[in-house]
């Protein structure tokens, strides 16, 4: 009798621990993924290759970030655009133009516009950091190696997308693809990740390709050439004055 009740408890405990191991915190996972390139603080050198039907261009940029609300990106190459910089502080985006030595704040009506001529919008810069707050998550499907996670916006959230679907690799907890759907449920953009590398004990994809689906011949590819986490940087670094430094 005692033995039986003991074994029941033991079985119960095993089941409990098993299920808690399975109780995947999707919100935490998405948060991890969205912060994968920034961490607590980071410094990066990246290459951005933009291709459209009319032109293609290649930029080299330096980026410094602190948490999810502060980052500063500055173009290094090509020479013509060297020094053009973007500062993001919380929900606001400023651009610095060295040619005319002016800082421009991106107005709300232009947040949907292209950032630095790429297929990334200003909105992507500010909204991505809030995905885990603005969306509800559900497991859409699961294979041995991947999770497919569906994100639907919370009713009160001011968001751009109607739905986002993440395909995440289980073992390394890195995204493989992210599909973006508009309000009518039509898939409009896919981001593909590749070249996962371990940096400071974190698994980070060094390649990120943005593919707008209505223009299949166009794309933006971001390639991290250098990336380090835990760099010493203060909040005061992300100031308009610093933005103007060439």
């Amino acid at each position: 009798m005692q033995l039986r009740s003991l074994s029941t408890i033991a079985l119960g405990l095993i089941l409990l621990s098993a299920s808690s191991a399975f109780a995947l915190d999707l919100r935490e996972l998405i948060r991890e993924i969205e912060d994968q390139h920034t961490g607590r603080s980071s410094r990066a050198v990246m290459n951005m290759q933009v291709e459209t039907s009319h032109w293609e261009r290649s930029l080299v940029m330096n980026a410094v970030s602190l948490g999810r609300d502060h980052f500063l990106i500055r173009i290094q190459e090509p020479p013509k655009e060297k020094g053009v910089a973007t500062l993001k502080v919380e929900q606001e985006v400023w651009n610095y133009l060295p040619k005319v030595d002016r800082v421009i704040k991106v107005p709300p009506s232009m947040m949907g516009g292209s950032w630095m001529g790429s297929h990334i919008t200003n909105n992507d810069l500010v909204k991505a950091a809030k995905i885990d707050q603005d969306y509800d998550f559900a497991l859409l499907g699961e294979t041995d190696t991947t999770w497919r996670i569906n994100c639907t916006p919370k009713p009160e959230a001011a968001v751009v997308w109607g739905r986002i679907v993440y395909l995440v690799e289980k073992a390394r907890r890195v995204p493989l693809t992210v599909d973006y759907f508009d309000e009518d449920g039509i898939k409009v953009r896919t981001i593909t990740f590749d070249e996962v590398k371990e940096i400071d004990g974190r698994q980070v994809p060094m390649l990120m390709a943005v593919q707008p689906l209505e223009k299949p011949q166009e794309s933006t590819v971001m390639h991290y050439r250098e990336l380090e986490f835990g760099v010493p940087v203060e909040e005061s670094f992300f100031s308009l004055r610093n933005l103007r430094q060439r």
């Binding site: 090509p78 133009l97 630095m116």
Partner: peptide
């Protein structure tokens, strides 16, 4: 005033 746009070669066109 500053005008900012995207030039035909994809670069950031800006001028006063």
């Amino acid at each position: 005033l500053v005008f900012l746009t995207q030039a035909a070669d994809g670069s950031i066109g800006n001028d006063l």
